[in-house]
Design a protein around this nucleic acid. Structure first.
Lengths: 240, 240
DNA sequence: TTTGTGATGTGATTTACATCACACTTCCTT
DNA sequence: AAGGAAGTGTGATGTAAATCACATCACAAA
């Protein structure tokens, strides 16, 4: 139940860990591989949503842009993550953009093929349902964190999620092994760069976090937990 | 594509409409029925989450309370709605409270029984997956609306969702056939009662909405749509 | 008929956060 | 090595929304 025990030894956990080796193999069999360059888009809002994506390597951000030009980052997916929309409508469209932020290798699954697979393999269907449930809960808890505890709470929640996704233990400290700009963090919590900068400054001054050659280091995780009333949920759920 | 065409003739649409009659029957066969009085709780956060609930009659709100006593309403479920958590963890717990707000008759499905059913019936598994996808998107779009367009945007989005859930056409106007207090609306958008009151006042003065014996009537839906940059998504998704 | 209770409506004040403006740093390029 | 771009840090100011503090209203119960 301690902070360090809960976190897995590896620095990066993928949401496809929900699946057994066999199920993942079955999914991989119906994928076709594609490459996408950083800066491209996998899909735009309004595009029809009938595919699932398995990120074999790279990074994809799910974002939403407002009319005034502000951008909101809903998810950041990394190597090993599975994402996409499964919808009951024939002509369903995406509500968000998928921005490729690192050169990526992506396995694409057609919804029709997935349906056949789920139809055939009950065990996969059950695992898939659990994976979907997990992703939904991740959205819900993030929603709660960003709505209920003000911008500082949203930032602390995001830092915790970054720990769970990219964290590497270093004694009692946790290094977030991923460079992040103030602007990126701002877009993740719906705040401005300036606000994030000031909040991070406060946390540094209070010795809650520190910077080590441009990586954020968490020195006092319980403090962050306290601010966003974090209940120490499973790392697999509490992610970016 | 017009507003009136899009809305179904019945004033209330249930999320279980995602399922075929046969599938719903299969689900009903593994339910056991229970009754719950208004004011009780179906579950509290921290309770183990291993059940699904089918609301045969009544109303249940999914809420979250902050330490400072503020309450946030995540969902409002009504007759015909299916809800609950399906999780990959053995000892998974709820992150939210389920508050029974009207005397209800509820069909309870054990996760284990559901798994067997999905395992056996591929067609049900596919439908179930689509239902889960729809619920997830509902959460995502609500998240976006409440985060990106300020409190007025959040309120307009909520009014539109209320239309899609409880709306009844009356000529060019839409009556929200459900009494709502300012406080309730406030808890749905994470604002204060006073703010909601002022915003509703503004909308009334601008002739966007009106009150008719304590029911909200929407007189200018396009205006609401504009404020929260609503893209006219399917009514089944854009709900409370 | 009064009294209590929950809801609405509204002003004054405070607070949180965005916006604007600009200096400073890093590091990449050619 | 100089110039530029991208990022950081921070003050001053503006604004949305919360908070506080009441007045009023509707209506049910005593």
């Amino acid at each position: 139940m301690t902070d360090t025990l809960q976190r897995k030894p590896v620095s990066q956990v993928a949401n496809s860990d929900c699946f057994t080796e066999e199920s993942l193999t079955k999914l991989k069999e119906i994928m076709y591989e594609m490459r996408a360059e950083a800066g491209n888009h996998l899909f735009w809002e309004g595009d029809s949503a009938d595919k699932l994506y398995f990120l074999k390597r790279g990074q994809v951000k799910i974002t939403k842009a407002s009319d005034e030009g502000k951008s909101f980052i809903l998810y950041v997916y990394n190597t090993g993550d599975l994402f996409g929309q499964v919808d009951p409508f024939q002509n369903s469209v995406h509500s968000f953009n998928a921005e490729v932020t690192e050169n990526s290798i992506i396995g694409v699954i057609q919804q029709k093929d997935l349906e056949v697979l789920l139809w055939q393999h009950g065990d996969l269907a059950v695992e898939f349902m659990k994976w979907m449930g997990l992703m939904h809960r991740m959205t819900q808890t993030k929603f709660r964190d960003l709505m209920m505890f003000g911008k500082p709470g949203a930032l602390c929640s995001t830092l915790i999620r970054l720990c769970n996704t990219y964290g590497k233990n270093h004694g009692s400290e946790i290094v977030i092994t991923k460079k992040l700009t103030n602007s990126e963090l701002a877009d993740m919590i719906g705040a401005t760069r300036e606000s994030v900068n000031r909040m991070l400054g406060d946390l540094k001054r209070a010795n809650i976090i520190a910077m080590e050659n441009n990586y954020i280091v968490i020195k006092d995780l319980p403090y962050l937990r306290d601010i966003c009333q974090c209940e120490n949920c499973p790392v697999d759920m509490c992610r970016i």
